[in-house]
Design a binder for these strands. Structure first.
Lengths: 136, 136
DNA sequence: AAATAAATGTTTGCATACTAATGATATAGC
DNA sequence: GCTATATCATTAGTATGCAAACATTTATTT
């Protein structure tokens, strides 16, 4: 009989709770884009124009997922897409001017988001948490 | 210029990666239900019949989200619902026989899932990680 | 005690993200 | 040059999450 199993003590469960909390904080500070969309924007800001697939890889997203996220960013006119003349399969993605300025602004807000998310932890704790998540 | 912002070092980003990894492991071991569905089942196993809303609260889910998860479990005949005669708003949820035996089985698999998820961490690390996630 | 107000439980509709399967173009090996 | 394989992107289907709406119960007021 599995009466010694504690759902509340499982990594997966706690991960969900932590993520939930983070999402809530995120949307409070930054309601224009989701965390997923933000990571695409931030990476794009970092690396400049890239193909859709490549971009997805740079933020650890499935090609299909990336497609959807990009589609939403296109609709908001934050990024633009053009066919790569050298490789007709590729779709080159880049920030629009609006996208760039929103991203710069969002990055500042993102600092605050991270800060709030780990508000209950000491600096040492945060470092450890990041290490452990990494190691995992 | 925000060129000192490192997406890869943000808690939110790392949380997403960790969750991703966990989901992958979960579905490999347990393809019948999702982690969300499992947590409902596990909790239901623990507490017996409860109202839909209450159940959601017990696993930290929105009422609307809970409704959706329960709907899928109903379709799979893992849980059953009946109206509470004392309070017509309430929907009492309980495990079916099939649900109960699947849950017992799933809990055993869940142990393995947790084990695999934290395979790269020492026992001490795991304890610390759980504490940090909690504290957060 | 009836009427109104507030709280609680559930449902609906919509947005986001993820997966598996498919189609299109490019590259490598023969 | 031709076939096989790999890469890039898309489509269709499912799951989760939130905001708003609706129904029933409980509390408050008259």
């Amino acid at each position: 009989m599995p009466n010694d199993y504690r759902l509340d003590d499982q990594v997966g469960y706690k991960l969900r709770l932590a993520t939930q909390r983070h999402l809530e904080i995120f949307s409070r500070h930054l309601s224009d884009v989701t965390p997923t969309q933000f990571s695409i924007l931030a990476r794009l800001y970092e690396v400049g124009e890239t193909s859709q697939n490549q971009l997805g890889r740079l933020v650890a997203m499935d090609a299909a997922t990336t497609k959807g996220v990009i589609a939403r960013l296109l609709e908001k006119d934050l990024v633009e897409a053009r066919a790569d003349p050298n490789d007709l399969r590729r779709l080159q993605i880049s920030l629009t001017d609006a996208g760039r300025s929103l991203t710069i602004d969002a990055i500042e807000k993102a600092r605050k988001i991270t800060e709030d998310t780990v508000a209950n932890l000491t600096g040492r704790d945060v470092k450890r948490l990041l290490e452990l998540l990494d190691k995992m």
